[in-house]
Design a protein around this nucleic acid. Structure first.
Lengths: 240, 240
DNA sequence: CGGAGAGTTGACTGCCTTCAAGGCACGTGG
DNA sequence: CCACGTGCCTTGAAGGCAGTCAACTCTCCG
């Protein structure tokens, strides 16, 4: 394991508006900083945790990019999400004291380790933190339900359009461009997340490009007509 | 609203092994009972809460059967889950202080109302309750990820087989038959949940019946060969 | 008895998958 | 510096699974 014993200062972290600290007071923040013993680096391709690993901590992504995926006994495999800076990993592990999915870094990454027992202890003292933790878990539930909607009732074009808009919006909230991005994941991983085959992902990218909605070159994507993408999501009305 | 002011005794509830009380001590249980002000009845077809309603409470199903569904602005609609006795509704509402989905009773139902602020307050006092609440939220996240796997990587037969096994297993845990059940939802609702059309649901039921795996008559379903169903889930190896 | 909602079944269409071949980008080593 | 290998991506052709449209049946209940 690749650990740092450097103490992390949430109060001076540039992610404090996106991460756990949102809305916490000064004293709570100070306490929160106490409980974070270290950061952990994960190299590209490395796993932060694997399905079955004992659950001890939540992880806040500080930098880098992750995917989470589940594998079934019969070899079925599915990406359940992509996580970027400020997002929380590991909530799946609480219920059974072991992780039910694996978290893999898609690029070199760094996470803050939040020992869960200490987080619970602290959230018994500070109701703001407690409520915040509950909100984070609830947000994950709502997010998952959105994915269920996407997988259950959208067609390929709609899924990919929704995916691109979601990704660029999250990147924008982190100070990146509203229209350009470099994808960290392969077509296959996108397909796994969206419930389609990599060829279909590729073809759909090409169709969007033909229609002048986006510009694609391998991992690079530029959104030329965000409204058109949004219209595609909103019931596949492809007319301009 | 159809309310009871009758106090509920968790300690004498026949669902205590399935519901919130699991694993709580006597004192915690006593406190928990204090916070439940009333039960609420919902008639078949009635809504416990609708998307957009202010969030105040979680609900523990005491009797009856619910579906939760989300509706998008463009009219897309999807069932995100079915809930039976002992299961918790409303976790989606925490993050935005309003519900993001609607809960509809599929048969006359009764729920215990758990005001969330009081639940948080109590869980600051009792770490067992606190951890239990976290487990319930984590369980929901893991459940949703299972549905994502189903929707993203299974074919129609596999989805329905997984659905039937899941349903009968949950009913069995509540003392019902391991092989027989009466569905509370329509083909359309099953289809919406499983990401398929009602005709496909119906056809798949018929095929299972032809294959001697189940017996179906409208809402009544009897599982004749649970192993065959399990094999279908495990990668569609339809051979016996 | 009649109407309405729910479910079944058939025929046809179409979207996505499958299978296959080829192209592009990048890193390594001669 | 360029050849070569590898992983990733693109594109084409053909086929299958589920969707669509439509007709009919069943069940329940007023």
């Amino acid at each position: 394991m690749d650990l740092h014993s450097i103490k992390v200062a949430c109060s001076s972290c540039n992610l404090r508006e996106l991460c756990i600290p949102v809305g916490l007071g000064a004293e709570e923040l100070a306490q929160l900083e106490q409980l974070i013993p270290f950061r952990r680096r994960v190299r590209r391709g490395g796993t932060l945790f694997s399905a079955g690993d004992p659950f001890t901590s939540l992880y806040a992504v500080r930098s880098g990019f992750f995917k989470t995926c589940i594998t079934t006994v019969d070899g079925r495999d599915q990406v359940t999400g992509f996580q970027m800076a400020g997002e929380i990993l590991g909530l799946d592990g609480i219920v059974q004291d072991k992780h039910s999915c694996s978290a893999v870094a898609l690029e070199d990454a760094e996470v803050c380790v939040l020992p869960f027992d200490k987080l619970e202890q602290l959230s018994r003292e500070f109701s703001t933190l407690q409520h915040h933790l509950h909100r984070i878990m609830s947000r994950e539930i709502v997010r998952d339900q959105g994915v269920m909607l996407l997988l259950g009732s959208m067609r390929a074009e709609e899924r990919l359009a929704a995916f691109l808009l979601n990704l660029v919006q999250r990147l924008h909230a982190r100070g990146f461009s509203k229209t350009e991005m470099v994808l960290r994941m392969t077509r296959e991983e996108i397909g796994s997340y969206l419930g389609m085959k990599l060829e279909t992902v590729s073809r759909t990218f090409s169709r969007f490009q033909e229609d002048g909605i986006i510009e694609v070159k391998q991992r690079y994507v530029r959104i030329l007509d965000a409204d058109a993408l949004q219209r595609i999501v909103n019931h596949g009305d492809t007319d301009a």
